[in-house]
């Protein structure tokens, strides 16, 4: 029994020491890094950079962000929003590289405008490079 507990104790100490040094690093390195911004609005049009729009076989989509204050850091959760409209910007204010978008219930929430890797729906992301 004592030997088992000694092994368990050593294992426990190892885990505690490992995560003490690497816990924070793992938090920031295992999640997609994203740039977040609120979309620009011109009249009734919502304008986003092209890099904010992702594509799959079913069409275009973006990721909105829900921010909540976590125990150790701000927790950002990405939610996939399917677009009903995505056309190049015609307002003339932004020009090339910007698109005018529309989606059900989407009116200007915090949006992922750039990501180092595409997040999954409901995945936690980290803001920054």
């Amino acid at each position: 029994m004592k030997r088992v507990v000694t092994v368990l104790a050593a294992f426990f100490c190892g885990i505690i020491v490992f995560f003490t040094f690497f816990g924070e690093k793992l938090f920031y390195s295992t999640k997609p890094h994203v740039e977040i911004a609120r979309p620009q609005r011109i009249n009734d049009l919502i304008i986003l950079p092209e890099t904010a729009v992702f594509h799959d076989a079913d069409g275009d989509y973006i990721f909105t962000i829900t921010a909540e204050e976590g125990f150790s850091a701000q927790l950002l959760t990405a939610t996939k929003v399917r677009l009903t409209r995505c056309v190049p910007d015609e307002t003339g204010y932004f020009g090339v590289g910007y698109v005018s978008v529309a989606a059900e219930g989407y009116s200007g929430a915090l949006t992922v405008v750039r990501a180092n890797s595409e997040p999954r729906d409901g995945e936690r992301v980290v803001e920054g490079e």
Binding site: T20, E24, F71
Partner: peptide, 8 residues
């Protein structure tokens, strides 16, 4: 340990 890293 990771998401709540300040716990340690």
């Amino acid at each position: 340990f990771v998401t709540n890293f300040t716990y340690l």
